[in-house]
Amino acid sequence: MEDLFHNLGIDWKILVAQIVNFTILVFVLTKFLYRPLLGMLNRRRDEIKKSAEKTVAADKLVAEIERQKEEVLAKARTTSSEMIKKAETQATGAAEKIMTDAQAEAKRIAADERKKLASEHDALMQEATRSLGATVIRAVEQSVGDVLDEKAKGKLVEQAMQKVQVTART
């Protein structure tokens, strides 16, 4: 057996040295290479997993928000169209009322103006009649003088005034 080991070059001292060498290598690589890198790989994997989970949750949240937004928008569209219709109806009613009121006001103003004009006209005519009456009286008194008595003068003035009034009316 010893010869066999000798012929194959097996030496227990070299064997032990190689085992020690390999043990040191395993120790150093584990401490300085495998452990930090495996830790980093696992940390990165965990964070990627967490991020993926967060992304899924965020996608769900976005979908929910989108659904709620659509719901709110649909509701808002319905409400706004209802409001627009209502406003249109109210505006049409208001416009009609304004038109009616304006027409009534215009008629009222026109009537008032007519009344005012008529009353001014009457006042002017009365003033003119009075003035003309006074002129006629003076003209009668000056033209007939003392020819006629007071009674006749009064009658003549009265007749002249009646004619003046009739003329003024026409």
């Binding site: 070299i14 060498n21 290598l25 690589l29 300085f32 290479l33």
Partner: peptide, 26 residues
Amino acid sequence: PLPVTNTMLTAWIVSLGFIIFAFIIS
């Protein structure tokens, strides 16, 4: 008492290479 063979020397060089690499990485 330890005979250092050429295979052992090569093994030490390989080990040293790995150890240096591990230190650089760490």
